[in-house]
Nucleic acid binder design. Structure first.
Length: 423
RNA sequence: GGAGGAAUGGCAGAGUGGUCGAAUGCGGCAGUCUUGAAAACUGUUGAGGGUCACACCUCCGGGGGUUCGAAUCCCUCUUCCUCCGCCA
């Protein structure tokens, strides 16, 4: 959520920056400003009435105390109309505030100046590329075939137990998955992130805090009975640790890493691109989350990008880094780098990580602040990224490391797996 | 699931209808003293709205009500604690 003060002060700047998202925010912002004025006017009127009625009440109290009941009763009569007015104004105030809130929720974050213009993923800007794309046999298989051949992932069994998009991992497949989780967590911990385990279900307030709610309800599984949501990413529970928190400057940087399963409804997606591990309803992910001083958040973002690069380098997977264009940028992000690993047998890039700076957008919703050097409370910046999303890394490993003798295990993972080939 | 108790500022803890945004202690910050530190002493120390700055307004778990007036009374929800039951 953008800060009202920013909208008041730099409306035009915000409108022009949001054009990068192909959004014409002008009418929305005009409405916000109109409601803001209305809200403040109503507030002032209400405050005056409340001040008067507070004063009267005190006088009445004093009169009763000094035994002047009659005078007190005369004053009492005057409070009736004040009460009526304050009730009406209070309702008007709530209505205006609520409407204002609704509008503010509809405004996406302002893109950073580095964000390229563009509409679709075609317009994302490749900023880095590394790793050799292996030359495979003509009979190289996509990962879903390999999964079947080596009996390590069973998609049909998942359909039986739950439904499409809930695979079952077995034997070396399950072990490799566990190895990746342990390896990622270790790498993150070495880099200074504190490992944390969080709930996999969150309440409504948490959904609002990080921006999944309102409007994106369709993405999350909702448990009606208890009004809880299955997390689509660890970002939600981890970042919400800091909802309604005021930090000290010395607390920065705050770095957390956590492994969680992620649940996504993915309503509406279908077809060849969702085959195998490409798109699932339940998948595992290791996430990194940072809370930063505003002056340091972009340095932190770069650091996170380097960190993820290092992991992919160690895994010896061919990958590239994209700077998302305005049209592809997530609603709450100011700048996002996507990592894609090349899936050789499918001959396409698969997104395996997304690293973003949300600046103060989430913090504003979360009321996540810190006390600055002047003793003033100001909003912190939040960031997060995947390191990494398991299924597509797994797909990348299976496809890129396949040989006629079986699937080789990347060297760094061998100690975690306890074997060096899947055959 | 059943029975009882509780929820107040960073923490502990008073306050049971009026001048209470809230005693006191601890903690934090600033100062005095000191070569420096500690101790001691003095001051200061919640959040939001509003204003050029004041004034002023709101907030004592959430929501609603009674009253001229609510931290205090009533209703309701949530959470926590104790006991019983069940249980990985």
């Amino acid at each position: 959520m953008l800060q009202l003060q920013a909208i008041r002060e730099e409306k035009d700047k915000i409108i022009s920056a949001l054009k990068k998202r192909n959004v014409d925010a002008a009418p929305l912002l005009e409405n916000v400003l109109r409601l803001d004025v209305e809200r403040r006017n109503t507030q002032t009127q209400l405050d005056n009435i409340l001040a008067e009625s507070n004063k009267l009440s005190k006088e009445i109290g004093m009169l009763f105390k000094s035994g002047k009941a009659q005078e007190a009763n005369i004053l009492k009569e005057k409070t009736g109309s004040l009460k009526e007015d304050s009730k009406k104004l209070g309702e008007a105030l709530n209505a205006a505030a609520e409407e204002l809130q609704t509008l503010l929720y509809q405004i996406p974050n302002v893109p950073n100046h580095l964000v390229p213009a563009g509409n679709t993923e075609e317009d994302n800007e490749e900023v880095f590329k590394e790793g050799d794309i292996p030359v495979l046999n003509t009979n190289a298989l996509p990962h879903w075939e390999l999964a079947k051949k080596y009996d390590i992932i069973d998609f049909e069994l998942g359909v039986k137990i739950t439904g499409a998009g809930f695979p079952v991992y077995r034997g070396k497949g399950a072990r490799l998955q566990r190895a990746l989780i342990a390896y990622f967590l270790d790498k993150n911990t070495e880099a200074g992130y504190t490992e944390i385990q969080v709930p996999h279900l969150v309440n409504e307030a948490s959904g609002y805090g990080t921006g999944q709610l309102p409007d994106k309800e369709g993405q999350m599984y909702h448990i009606k009975e208890d009004d809880l949501y299955l997390i689509p990413t660890a970002e939600v529970p981890v970042t919400n640790i800091f909802r309604d928190v005021i930090l000290n400057e010395g607390d920065f940087p705050i770095c957390y890493t956590g492994y969680t399963p992620c649940f996504r409804r993915e309503a509406g997606s279908y077809g060849a691109h969702v085959r195998g591990l490409n798109r699932l309803h339940q998948f595992d992910k290791v996430e990194i989350v940072r809370v930063e001083h505003p002056s340091n958040s972009y340095k932190a973002l770069d650091g996170m990008v380097e960190h993820v690069k290092n992991i992919l380098r160690e895994l010896k997977l061919p990958y590239r880094v994209l700077r998302l264009c305005g049209g592809d940028l997530g609603f709450t992000a100011a700048l996002t780098y996507d990592f894609e690993v090349f899936s050789t047998a499918q001959d396409r890039w698969l997104e395996i990580s997304s690293v973003s700076n949300f600046e103060a957008y989430q913090a504003n919703r979360l009321r996540l602040r810190f006390r600055d050097a002047n003793g003033e409370n100001q909003l912190a910046h939040t960031l997060n990224g995947s390191s990494l999303a398991l299924p597509r890394v797994l797909a990348g490993i299976l496809e890129n490391y396949q040989t006629p003798e079986g699937i080789k295990i990347p060297e760094v993972l061998i100690p975690y797996c306890g074997f060096d080939v899947i055959d």
